[in-house]
Simulated assay, not measured.
Amino acid sequence: MPDPLFDHDDNANTPLTAEEREGLIPSYITLRHELNEAEQINIGAAQRWADSRRRDILDRGFLSELHQRMFGDVWRWAGQYRTTARNIGVEAYRIAMDAQQAVDDARYWVEHATYPPDEIAVRFSHRLVAIHPFPNGNGRFSRLAGDLLALQLGQPPFTWGSVSLVDAGETRARYIEVLQAADNHDIRPLLLFARS
């Protein structure tokens, strides 16, 4: 199933396709807005879980558990790396290696103060979304991971445009634009967006 960040449907009453419903746990969900609501409730619970623990976000096991907690009440595959190709992200066989490299790089950046704390957290979030490790929810997962790393580094969580990026057309388009700039090695627009 595509990430709603990149495959946005302006009609929340659009029925989910059979492919989209594959792996779905709640049987009552048939429409996009029902899926968004169920995911948001699950993400809220994951946020409370993460806020109640002092964990090192720079751990691949924690990251998988975070995704599982964000989507585990909605999707059977939550927390499991994707095994199929996507139009964005690395090839599936590279996910574990690239995710570990992202964690290792961020640990190095923290240890050696390579960048200011905000930039470390934003670069880490960008790396995760660029890898696109899971079948769905990668944008929301990477932003929460960035927020948690910012907190771990003594900074407040980011605002990411101050609206839900699943439903916000103009802000969502801006987010995609700044992600693409970061893909082209210009991190500044994403840094500014993260605190906007």
Rank of each mutant, 00 (worst) to 15 (best):
P2M: 09
P2E: 07
P4C: 03
L5V: 06
F6P: 02
H8S: 15
D9H: 13
D9N: 11
D10K: 04
D10H: 03
T14D: 11
L16T: 14
A18K: 15
A18M: 13
E20K: 12
E22Q: 13
E22S: 09
L24T: 14
I25K: 14
Y28C: 08
T30N: 04
T30V: 14
R32C: 12
H33A: 11
H33G: 05
E34R: 12
L35Q: 06
A38V: 11
E39D: 07
E39G: 09
Q40K: 12
Q40P: 03
Q40L: 11
I41H: 06
N42V: 05
A45I: 12
A46V: 08
Q47Y: 10
Q47P: 01
R48F: 10
A50R: 03
D51Y: 06
D51L: 13
D51T: 15
R53S: 00
R55H: 11
R55D: 08
R55C: 03
I57Y: 07
G61S: 14
G61V: 01
E65Y: 07
H67S: 01
Q68I: 01
R69C: 00
R69K: 15
M70T: 11
F71C: 11
V74D: 01
W75D: 00
R76P: 04
W77T: 14
A78Q: 10
A78P: 08
G79W: 12
Y81F: 14
R82C: 10
T83R: 11
T83N: 13
A85H: 14
R86W: 02
N87C: 08
G89P: 12
G89Q: 03
V90K: 07
A92M: 01
Y93H: 05
I95C: 00
A96N: 07
D98R: 11
V103K: 06
V103T: 04
D104T: 09
D104W: 02
D104H: 01
A106S: 15
R107Q: 15
E111K: 12
Y115E: 00
P116R: 05
I120H: 00
F124T: 11
F124K: 00
F124L: 10
F124S: 05
A130K: 15
H132T: 05
P133Y: 06
P135L: 10
P135G: 13
N136M: 09
G139E: 02
R140H: 00
R140C: 01
R140Q: 00
F141A: 04
R143I: 02
L144G: 00
L144N: 00
D147I: 08
A150S: 03
A150K: 03
Q155H: 07
P157W: 06
G161R: 02
G161S: 10
V163H: 06
V163A: 12
L165W: 05
D167C: 04
D167E: 09
T171W: 07
R172G: 12
R174M: 11
Y175R: 14
I176S: 05
E177F: 14
V178H: 15
V178S: 15
L179H: 09
Q180F: 10
N184H: 12
N184K: 15
D186F: 11
D186N: 14
L190W: 14
L190E: 10
L192C: 05
F193Q: 03
A194T: 10
R195I: 14
